[in-house]
Amino acid sequence: MDRLKGKIAVITGGCAGIGLATVERFEAEGARVLVGDIDDAAGAALEARFPGTVAYRRCDVTDEPQIEALMAHAVDRFGGLDILFNNAGAGGSPQRLEEMTGEAWDRSQGLLLRSVALGMRYALPHMKARGGGAIVNTASIAGLQAGMGPIAYSVAKAGVIHLTKVAAAELARDGVRVNAICPGLILTNIFTPSETVPAGMAELIKQTMAQQAPDAQPIAKPGLPADIANAALFFASDESAFVTGVHMLVDGGMFVGPRQSWDPEMRAERTRMQEARRAAFEAGQAS
């Protein structure tokens, strides 16, 4: 407890999923938190749930003036800004490259990459006024390897990873650390956006994912928003005071190696195949 005592944080996309779990974690650790989101009802509920320590301000992170106003409101409401968690986002355009329009591409990059750069840009003056701060960006394993997400989303998240590194170098002597988290398969609404997936189907998809997720990576449990919130807490706290410019995979070990390196059934199958080949070879030699 109290790992963020006296700190003031802004969390974008804080009304659901990873953002909500991080709001809860930061508040429990002593931070005062300003949530930026576009779900006004959920934002009001958060304020009622955490009176005095959590505030809400509507912020569409594709709108630059709203980002600027969000950072300024943290100072007006709580007196400063120490931590920024650039977390707001969605799946972006699902289109393949041959179907992609410039408008769909720009919309995805604006939501997932441009918003992160502008969040940092408008947080910086307030952090410098406090002597420094910590910035945490939500990237993705999709930014590290093909096949983990749609092309526009994956390229944007790769951009977030590199932006994190370049910004960390630029801001280090200002006392501002910048790090990124690359979630793996985390059970959130990003896989079931309400604008395209009916509520009943969304619930069915979530249940199926929860059942199948333990088989998708070495650690046999579904990834949860709280797993990312714990990583965000580390980067936001003084425990990571000597860490900047890195991206942390929180993916249940999905990237440790090919499936045969950790799946006992695949290893057993490979052993059976090797033994069968050896037996066939020896039989041929004997004849």
Score class of each variant (00 low, 15 high):
Thr271Cys: 14
Met248Ala: 10
Ala69Gln: 03
Tyr56Ala: 00
Met71Pro: 00
Glu265Phe: 12
Gly80Ala: 09
Ala44Asn: 07
Leu187Ile: 05
Glu265Asn: 08
Leu118Arg: 08
Thr208Lys: 11
Pro218Lys: 13
Met71Ala: 14
Gly200Ser: 13
Ile181Arg: 10
Ala158Arg: 03
Gly253Trp: 02
Leu20Tyr: 07
Arg272Gly: 04
Ala90Ile: 02
Thr138Phe: 03
Ile161Glu: 15
Thr244Gly: 14
Lys157Asp: 03
Phe235Glu: 01
Phe234Glu: 15
Arg130Pro: 00
Asp39Arg: 15
Arg270Lys: 08
Ala139Arg: 01
Trp105Ala: 01
Ala280Thr: 11
Trp105Ile: 04
Asp37Val: 01
Gly119Pro: 05
Leu224Asn: 10
Ala268His: 15
Pro65Arg: 05
Phe234Asp: 06
Phe255His: 09
Gly14Met: 03
Gln66Asn: 12
Lys5Phe: 11
Ser115Asp: 03
Glu195Ala: 14
Leu204Gly: 06
Gly159Ser: 15
Arg130Asp: 03
Ile181Met: 14
Ser237Thr: 06
Leu20His: 03
Asp76Met: 15
Thr164Met: 05
Glu203His: 06
Asp37His: 04
Gln207Glu: 10
Val246Cys: 12
Gln274Ile: 06
Thr138Trp: 04
Ala146Met: 10
Pro198His: 10
Val54His: 07
Ala220Glu: 09
Gly13Met: 00
Arg49Glu: 04
